[in-house]
Amino acid sequence: MKNYPIRTTVVVLLLFSVPVFAHHGNAGYDMAKMTVLQKATITQVEWGNPHCQIHFDVTDDKGTVEHWLVEAPPPSELRPRSWTRKSLNAGDEVTIYFHAAKNGAPVGIIQKVIFTKDGSILRAYPDPK
């Protein structure tokens, strides 16, 4: 994983595990850390099973664009949280909260996004307590 400037990357250490349950479990992700990337640009949202998939790009200090992919719950779990297939679209700029893969691959499991334009929030899972 590349190094991101402090202004765009925040890693939050969680005192308690997050009650996230993906259908394949969470063993591949670092559930003790929340990665926060600001000014992420959504490039694609795949709405489906077994999990929705959210593609986004971030740019590091050197101007290098890195492509990320995070999984989200399936529609049956997102829709009850007022997250529809039209809620997040390619081109949206967001701050994205997720648990990254332990091995450094640019993939993870999303927690929430905050839209840059108005501060509105989409939660994939309830916030950790």
Binding site: N49, P50, Q53, L69, E71, P75, R79, A101, N103, A105
Partner: peptide, 25 residues
């Protein structure tokens, strides 16, 4: 809400998410 297990969708998910996560750092 419809939930369906699809081998093609599972395989797509595996290629995108699972396989990269299983590769060694």
């Amino acid at each position: 809400v419809e939930h369906s297990c699809s081998m093609s969708e599972n395989e797509h998910f595996r290629q995108n998410i699972i396989d990269p996560t299983l590769t060694k750092a």
